[in-house]
Design a protein around this nucleic acid. Sequence first.
DNA 1: TTGAAAGCGATACCAC
DNA 2: GTGGTATCGCTTTCAA
Lengths: 353, 353
Amino acid sequence: MSGIAKVAELAGVSKSTASRALTGAGYVSESTRARVIAAAATIGYVPSTSAVSLATGRTRTIGVVMPYVNRWFFAEVLEGIQEALLEHGLDLTLYDAKPGSAGRRRIFEDFLARKRFDGLIAVGLEPADDELERMRAIDRPLVTVVGEDPSTSVVAIDDDHAVRRATEHLIALGHDSIVFLGGGAGSNWAHVDRRRLDGYLEAMADADLGDHVRHVPSDVSLPGGYAAAVDLLGGARRTPTAIVGVCDEVAIGAIIASRRLGIRVPTDLSVVGIDDHEYAEMFALTTLEQVPRSQGLAAVELLLAHIADPDHAPRQVRLQARLVMRSSTAPPATHETAAVGDMRVQRRRFADE
Amino acid sequence: MSGIAKVAELAGVSKSTASRALTGAGYVSESTRARVIAAAATIGYVPSTSAVSLATGRTRTIGVVMPYVNRWFFAEVLEGIQEALLEHGLDLTLYDAKPGSAGRRRIFEDFLARKRFDGLIAVGLEPADDELERMRAIDRPLVTVVGEDPSTSVVAIDDDHAVRRATEHLIALGHDSIVFLGGGAGSNWAHVDRRRLDGYLEAMADADLGDHVRHVPSDVSLPGGYAAAVDLLGGARRTPTAIVGVCDEVAIGAIIASRRLGIRVPTDLSVVGIDDHEYAEMFALTTLEQVPRSQGLAAVELLLAHIADPDHAPRQVRLQARLVMRSSTAPPATHETAAVGDMRVQRRRFADE
DNA sequence: TTGAAAGCGATACCAC
DNA sequence: GTGGTATCGCTTTCAA
């Protein structure tokens, strides 16, 4: 005999009473409760989670599906989720669903169907239609971080608005030659990135800069931003006076590229990002701050509400991004522009080589 | 009625037979097996994991404990582990045990004791004694990635040897003023970092450079390396001709700092790292390559062996790091050293400001 | 080759 | 307040 039965025996009560005493459900006199708890403590009783799950139908586990864990945003959200779950005593099972991978297929086809969780948090998934279907089919509360679907709860920032503000900041400074850098490389247009591009487009249009609009695609990563910026800034073609990065990683890549090319930031080139990435400070990047960690926390709270009350209506939590001014932006260098432009072409080779 | 009972009914067999047919344990005639499988398919049968766990004692889940998920090495290991587990159809539950956090305490005190996993992988944990004790106490196979303990299985690179090679590479190039950058900031000496420092110390001693030895502590992160390098290289004090970073993040931070200070890499300063970080290429960083993703895979395979055979002897898998030559290292600039040194002092302000 | 029945370790309903 | 017992969904002897 083991488990709760042993505790019961030790305390001289029945299993039912022991269970009630330990879980706090139902009436137990104070004295027996104390005895049961003491008994549990002496044998170091820990309930079997599978038995509990089988009996209650709850797993006390939350599933998290995300396409990357090695990118800043995702890692931060994950840490936020973990922190909140730890607080609530819930386990976190991770499903790393890399776009196009065999693993991802298995996750959607097999793993999710096992329902080893009371609820699911999907972070930046961009699910295909059949994937979305499967997530629906599992009949567990679902909260999305960075998502579209108005029929499920969503936590996200207002991307459109954030980029709009970033762009307007540049325009207010006097820039008109502003490039939107990142996203749309190959066939990969993530919804977020698209939405951010829209924010840029709108801000430009509103300022009558519609024909100055220019999007330069890149991988949405630091090296991706770097590579694209080297092409953009190192080329003989007219270079912009300002860049809006689709996210901080891309923006920072652009700053690094600028430095290597001998282009001074912000004197010759202004750069804004979106995120407030952990490296933003170090590159003095002006950016629109979002706090993915808090988004993770918020997602957990929302999900728990859904679990507690299945009829809880879907909620869209759209956070407002705050402008963090650092020193990667300045007014364009009006007079010297031409001269500097010339110089720049001459030193197309990396500045520190 | 539901679950396997329904499948059994549909196939016109008993639960036992259905179970055998589905799990492949025990004899079932081909024809009945086919019928059972068909029946399962028509109702979309998915076994209840809690019931299976309760009956078999196996959770088909692996626990992963790590102190960070937002650092390159850890994220990569995690992805490697996930990939391997997906392959095997196993779930991954994550325990993010930030040093000193309340969550960490709960993980070790409560979460692990629940044993919701068939085995545990601990990555770079640096557990306190009581924590180690608790991990032992849970009586589940344990594999460590980046660890010490010879009594448990370990997957890691030979850190000492890797840094030794990095240092020797610099020495062979003609450097003698070599700084070891990173680790040991505040009271945080991680074992790995300490071991890496040892490698440096040994290489220096072997080359009779014992009194040129110099360790500059820093946070083990990119901004940490950057900040420390700015101090080190921007100061009036004699600056080294070469730096060994405790890891690539620190090394890259140093490169970024150098560029800002107008110090050319590798002309004025050589830099080597350990890792082959995702950004190493972009900074042309010469480094000792380790592949954390493979370490994650290896850890899983090792763990599964332990689970399959509880008597499997502990194994220490020490991988050899490969030197990846890029262009952050070169012979020291012998003649111009003094002149350059002077210049450097003059332009202590950031080069692009 | 198949079926009946006994667990696995909890919860929860229903008497007492 | 407390105890007996059915139940959750599956695996696994043991007999047939």
